[in-house]
């Protein structure tokens, strides 16, 4: 974006699609940085935080959530039109989120089981990320996003520079933090080698394996990873579940999860 002068603060809008609000909450969790943030941008549309609404267009839009309904399909186009720059936040907006588990199942069937009046529920067959529908300027990963990364992305936007958001594995952060690897030293399965950094290796720091909140790293060898997981005691259904947690529909994770699904011959759906 163009260089920003203090006389007119750029406007920021925050939009929600199918999601849990956790990523927006990370913005509110910025606490100490909220005042400098409101000095740097005009928070023009953020229903989670304020009722005040400034009419669009907006300089920067943050979009949380995935596209799951016919209405979403239209609304995301409007958001795109109203936004100078569009940044998605979180796993849902990136690859469809946990709700993308529906991509592997028959939506009509479980809709009829779950709801008393399934005919009132209008929903799409698949949950998809924002970039499948409109042009996205930057995707910030995480379930939820990391607030420091969010501030870094916003600072980079304001200053017209590249955000410092790495696309390598969680292992890099894990080692930089001085952790002892939970897989090597304890035999605990960990998805860190194929997962993108961003959380600061939160789970391994507390002696747990990584769950893959930030989705695939830029060079994910998910097949070799599956062998490592299995060597450390995970059976096939566990491997499927690990790949199908927060980024079930991410290409690399989806494909690998399908390779470990029920034996050949069992009917299954692909997304």
């Amino acid at each position: 974006m163009a260089a920003v002068t203090k006389s007119r603060r750029p406007t920021l809008a925050v939009w929600k699609f199918a999601s849990c609000d956790g990523c927006q909450l990370q913005l509110l969790n910025c606490e100490d940085e909220l005042i400098p943030l409101s000095g740097a941008v005009e928070i023009a549309y953020f229903p989670e935080a304020t009722r005040a609404v400034v009419e669009g267009p907006y300089d920067v839009s943050l979009v949380e959530g995935s596209i799951t309904t016919p209405e979403d399909l239209e609304r995301i186009q409007q958001v795109r039109e109203m936004s100078g720059r569009l940044i998605t936040i979180g796993a849902c907006a990136t690859t469809g989120g946990i709700q993308a588990l529906r991509n592997f199942a028959d939506v009509a069937e479980f809709r009829s089981v779950v709801y008393a009046h399934p005919e009132y529920v209008s929903t799409l067959e698949r949950s998809t990320g924002i970039a499948e529908h409109v042009r996205v300027d930057f995707e910030l990963r995480g379930c939820p996003i990391d607030k420091n990364q969010l501030l870094e992305v916003l600072a980079a936007e304001l200053q017209g520079r590249r955000p410092r958001v790495a696309t390598h594995s969680v292992c890099v952060e894990c080692k930089a933090r001085g952790n002892v690897c939970v897989t090597i030293a304890h035999g605990t399965p960990c998805l860190g080698p194929v997962t993108q950094a961003g959380c600061g290796a939160l789970c391994p720091t507390f002696a747990r394996g990584c769950y893959g909140c930030f989705g695939p790293q830029d060079s994910p060898n998910t097949a070799s990873m599956a062998q490592v997981l299995s060597r450390h005691g995970m059976d096939e259904p566990q491997i499927v579940r690990l790949y199908r947690t927060f980024h079930a529909a991410a290409e690399a994770f989806r494909e690998e999860s399908e390779r470990h699904e029920a034996p050949a011959g069992t009917p299954r759906r692909t997304s």
Partner: peptide, 23 residues
């Protein structure tokens, strides 16, 4: 086929010295 491009080897190698500079 086996390598995960995870970087653990270089992070633990006592001689690896490559660095990046970030602003």
């Amino acid at each position: 086929d086996r390598c995960l491009s995870c970087q653990n080897c270089t992070m633990v190698c006592p001689t690896c010295f490559c660095t990046d500079v970030e602003d």
